[in-house]
Design a protein around this nucleic acid. Structure first.
Lengths: 174, 174
DNA sequence: TTTCGATACCTCGGGACCGAGGTATCTCGC
DNA sequence: GCGAGATACCTCGGTCCCGAGGTATCGAAA
């Protein structure tokens, strides 16, 4: 998840760690704030595996910045991740949103459509949060206003996304 | 997250591990499937800290079942968790949904309203996923259909939930 | 009849991430 | 001219959870 964000942001332009941290925080930080102790080791690991390079810049800033640049291998890796995302990136809304944020880096419209189709398949498969034996329960089955709300919200949000998915898929395949 | 699900399901009725696993899978499994290797150690840990008791049942099933029952301490713990959830349970939609699923166990309408108000405060604070310097970017700022969609979906879903939150808060405080 | 799938529980190694700590420099207010 | 806060990077221990494995019993199909 974090790795994908880093790859995605660096694909647009070289950034130093601190700026990267701010962008990642804007994208996913409201859900779960990103910690220093998570970001910097991730960068190191990616540098070690040749996905990015680091260049020391003694600019006007307080501390020397490490300018981070994606390598060709890093770009390749990003495209792979975007084309063949793990299931968790399709099913977990947080991860899915990160994927969406960078899907434009996949220049190929067919590849983009394939990813949207996976999400479409996931959202259209019937599923509930609660079952009585094998019968899926619906919002109307609950007296409880909270479970009712949970179901209502989930249904409404998936409807909104389905509409967008179908429209966008139509444009992509046109 | 898993602990809250276990507490919540067991608060209604005693269950054995396997049945618990199915219910947890229905509630959060579509996002991220729950693994045996996660559930059983969690149960053991909760047993060790006195939140639940275990009773061996040699019923008609293939393997002997461990019937799990919440203790008074477990019930207390659940109410504490529901009343004073960590920020992550307010901001992360996955966790928030789990919280909503069991909020009825909090018998006190004021306490329930307090939790909904925290979510309301989170959803109404202005935030974007992307910024240009300090200016938050909106859906219309993007050519990219994916980022456009991301913003559109996020706005629509939060609007739906806000509507429900305000309605339910009105009922709770009536 | 034997094998397969479902039921039911368990362990262990490892990965991702957190959080609390540390270091150092620059700028701005007081 | 001194402290506070922002900038910028780093480490280490710990927690949560996964995934791949293992054990054992039962019923139904082949």
């Amino acid at each position: 998840m974090l790795e994908l964000s880093i790859l995605g942001f660096l694909c647009d332009e070289s950034l130093h760690g601190y700026e990267l941290r701010k962008r990642v925080a804007a994208l996913t930080g409201h859900v779960k704030p990103i910690a220093d102790g998570t970001l910097y080791p991730a960068i190191k690991k990616m540098e070690a595996s040749g996905l990015l390079t680091r260049e020391l810049q003694s600019g006007p800033a307080a501390a020397p910045r490490h300018m981070l640049t994606l390598t060709a291998k890093g770009r390749e890796h990003l495209k792979n991740r975007l084309s063949n995302p793990d299931d968790a990136f399709i099913t977990d809304e947080n991860r899915w949103f990160v994927l969406l944020a960078f899907l434009r880096h996949l220049k190929n419209a067919d590849a983009q459509a394939a990813v949207l189709n996976r999400r479409l398949a996931f959202l259209t498969q019937p599923a509930s949060f609660f079952y009585d034996r094998d019968r899926p329960l619906r919002a109307a089955d609950f007296d409880d206003p909270f479970r009712k709300g949970l179901m209502t919200i989930a249904t409404a949000t998936s409807r909104t996304e389905l509409k967008w998915l179908r429209e966008t898929l139509a444009e992509l395949t046109a």
